[in-house]
Design a binder for these strands. Sequence first.
DNA 1: AGCACGCCGACT
DNA 2: GTCGGCGTGCTC
Length: 725
Amino acid sequence: MTIVRVALPLPLPQVFDYAASDASAADIGRCVKVPFGRGERSGLIVALDAEAEVDLARLKTVHHIQRDVPPLPADWLELVAFVARYYHAPIGEVVALALPPGLRRADGVSGEDEDPLLEIAPAGHAALGAARRPSKALALLQALAQDLAPWRRSVIREREGGEAVGELLRRGWLGVAVDEAQRRGTTGALPVLTDEQDGAVRAILQTGEGFRTWLLQGVTGSGKTEVYLRLAEQMLSRGRQVLMLVPEIALTPQLERRVAQRFAAANVVSLHSGLADGARSRGFVQALSGHADIVLGTRLAVFAPLPRLGLILVDEEHDASYKQQEGVRYSARDVAVWRGRQRDVPVVLGSATPSLETWYHARAERYALQVLNQRAVAASMPTVRCIDVRRLKLDEGLSPGLKAAIEQRLARGEQSLVFLNRRGYAPVLSCPSCGWVSRCPHCSANLVVHLADRRLRCHHCGCDGGIPHACPSCGNQDIQPFGRGTQRIEARLAELFPQARVLRVDRDAARTRKQWESLLATIAEGGADILVGTQMMAKGHDFPKLTLVGVVGADASLHAADFRAPERLFQQLMQVGGRAGRGTLPGEVLIQTEYPAHPLYLHLARHDFDAFARMELQERRSAGFPPFTYQAMLRADAPALDDAVEFLRHARRLAEERAPEGLRIYDPVPMRMTRLARRERAQLLLEADQRGMLQGFLAGWVALLYCQRTARELRWQLDVDPLEV
DNA sequence: AGCACGCCGACT
DNA sequence: GTCGGCGTGCTC
């Protein structure tokens, strides 16, 4: 009889032993169903065991081992173990987050869905030539005939009328393309590389296939993606797999299209949380079996098993969405770098505005650096200018200068974008006579006025209600929305420029992926003259007719409490500024500010990220912030603030008893947003100058915390390398 | 996390 | 007399 060690998706820091008569070493890494308590659970075999760690009498027997799918390889188990160790999370929870849910359930996976490479068969050509009654199938075939063959079945399915692909196969009009391996490679004419792009590609390839982390720092429009594609092409031609991470699902479709077009014959698999269970499992299994050539996905894709891995690309590496903000708070970018080292393959981190951690590593020569300063498209960098609004009379937040600039664009038939990182009509509704403000009943936040659908809404917990006609406290009829959001700016712009088509692009207007894509299409077709948008608009999209970006209300982040606020502001402004003038028309960025001489804006105006980074790092060094120190944050939440704080005080005492020299333990404090969704939150910060020392301490401390019995309504979690402090 | 067991208040 | 509150402890 064999004893297997099983990781189960529970918040427990242990694994469980089971008996399995027919198990062997070949089953390590396989999913299992096991009896647990009085029910059944699915888990993963992480090891075989010579002897059980519990009495044999307590040992239960595995119900089922899933053998239809190849086992997860040893390096994958190692990766999961590393994440559990580094983030101090139970191994089972990491397995649960790394494995697609459908796969873990181990209930007869549909098997690997073949995604064959198809081309038009002789019968198909005959059908095209013959006079036939129009049909859906024929229409699809005709559309395909206009295209460059071959295509993946899945790619055809996604195009217009793609449902008919099954019909085409049944009729024998489409057949499996011959000689798949030989077709692997690029199709069509490749764009000519700039000298910088070419230099970067050569440099990265020349260092060989071993591990090395690269920072590819390229201004918006410098063609980082083309560099990724060239590197990927090389790796594919060597028979290796490529892992490409992108920040958000919203960005995957267009990149997916571009990658699929470039490597028409390669098997490109996308992995993100928006996928249905089945599709995610299939993509994962394709990666695992080595049938996927390129895995393109969001942070969870960093866990895709890749037997032939040759290269890891992390696009927009500074993006906060790489860090999971709940449960196991891993950073996919950091995990990617660890994985590159583990598998001895290069890792390329790309960004126009790298995180200061990455930038610092590159300067300290722990990472190698490649810089792209020229825009690949025939456009120059936009002019960036501050509008000093201290002595100006603003019209609903808009300065005369910005209005004039918009007017000019309208006259020239170009597009303008007003960037404002605040959704809704106004951030608060308030009564001028008694001082009442629209507070959220569940959070320490104000309810935001949404005039578009006449609601007051909390942006943190999502609760909402109608807009009262009089002050709920004193009955005053004259209650006022204070401040400005995108809806208000949109309304004012529509009044000011009645002839213009004003389009608002924020999370409210682009609720679903469909809405978002239709907005993008409208903009690209020139169906809008003035855009009002939040940071959604900052993400990599090209609008050739967009030549003006007006920034409103940026000053707020200048004095934010979070030490990373300036970094985020600079990144955001540089990104949104990069939207201006990506075609042949020159772009202009106008920033409305009360601090026109602020160094952040001055560096921005010169497009000098490096100067900004140097300045900011100087401050971080003297203040003792990351990347010069290492942090971990213990957070607790409960219905009553005292309970959360009391737990943290207790945790602090436990920490002090065993703290090594040089570990700094701060006082528990309520979080900045103390109350969220009826729970009060507090946090305790730990800091050290060496990562190893902090990690060593955390291991023992967290083990101790798991043993503490706490009130049922109290939750706690540890955040290693927290983004928000 | 679930889900048991287990000991004290208002109900058919 | 019981249904049910959630405190405590276990799950291979």
